[in-house]
């Protein structure tokens, strides 16, 4: 499967190991996807570089309205974090839906993003939340918006043989904002979603109008897809059922799911998608209203 397993002590340590013999090593965090791929021969590598013991990557914090989640932070930590529930609830909901507790205790949120599976729950939430990831290589770091992260199914723009995502950065909700996540699933645990939707709403003062809405949906394309046309319809409009419904159907019109033998036909997913988008928007709005 692999011959060497290196436990990195710092980001620069990890990067220098990676670049020692280019292409020979790959980053491992929780490893819950990677180990299966290696086991099944879908991926190959000589060495693994484990980053979960790097102290600076274990950070989960909020400062000046910015949430930072380090690359070693697990789904369970996010799902149990009061800070995340209060300031980016869609992410906590998404993190709680992944696999099982045993998986969530090991699998990292950043790993979920990087692995670039089309239905990655936290990636969908983070897309709605407008997150960025910080990528480090030997020459320094750069921030990339999550919208720009995905190339194709199973392929992100992060090269795990050369570089390393150190953290994900999320703007915390303001008083007039909230977010919600729903998942259409065939089983309550240990299942990939048939569809997952995350929505973030920002309301104007008086809570009668949308300021803007971000809608992310998957698996309807290579990575989480923004329902940009639906977002445009809602921007600045009065909040009512009719416009939400219209936007929800617009979201479906933009989605491009595949037929899956395991997780539903394209047709079915397109048909039920609007109902899920509506639920998401309405609940997110209600959450803002409940804040007062």
């Amino acid at each position: 499967m692999f011959q060497e397993y290196y436990m990195a002590e710092s980001v620069s340590d990890a990067l220098s190991f990676l670049n020692k013999g280019p292409g020979d090593a790959v980053i491992i965090a929780g490893g819950t996807d990677l180990l299966l791929d290696l086991h099944e021969g879908k991926k190959r590598t000589k060495s693994l570089v484990d980053i979960t013991r790097i102290p600076e990557l274990k950070n989960l914090s909020m400062e000046d309205g910015i949430i930072k989640i380090g690359a070693a932070v697990t789904h369970a930590q996010v799902a149990e974090s009061e800070l995340i529930w209060a300031n980016a609830p869609a992410l906590a909901m998404a993190a709680k839906k992944v696999g099982s507790l045993q998986i969530r205790n090991i699998a990292t949120v950043v790993g979920n993003i990087i692995n670039a599976q089309p239905a990655a729950d936290t990636a969908v939430a983070l897309t709605a939340l407008g997150a960025k990831v910080t990528i480090a290589d030997t020459s320094g770091t750069r921030d990339v918006h999550i919208d720009q992260l995905y190339e194709d199914v199973g392929k992100s723009r992060v090269d795990c043989r050369r570089e390393l995502v150190t953290e994900v950065i999320i703007p915390a909700h303001e008083q007039n904002q909230s977010s919600y996540f729903v998942r259409l699933e065939q089983r309550k645990a240990l299942a990939l979603p048939m569809l997952n939707i995350a929505v973030m709403v920002s309301l104007e003062k008086g809570q009668q109008r949308f300021e803007w809405v971000r809608i992310a949906m998957a698996p309807v394309g290579p990575g989480p897809m923004r329902a940009t046309n639906a977002e445009r319809i809602l921007k600045g409009t009065e909040i009512d059922d009719e416009i939400i419904t219209k936007a929800a159907y617009e979201a479906a019109a933009q989605a491009n799911p595949r037929d899956s033998d395991l997780r539903g036909s394209r047709e079915y997913r397109l048909q039920v998608l609007p109902a899920l988008v509506k639920r998401c928007i309405k609940t997110a709005v209600a959450q803002v209203v409940n804040k007062g």
Binding site: S100, Q186, R187, K188, L192, L262
Partner: peptide
Amino acid sequence: TSEEIKISAKGKPLHTSYHKYLLPTAMD
């Protein structure tokens, strides 16, 4: 409600793991 092994056009079973084969968990 959920359990079934389906067959691909070439006769390959599609539900061959606990992850794909949807037997109920405690939450279900």
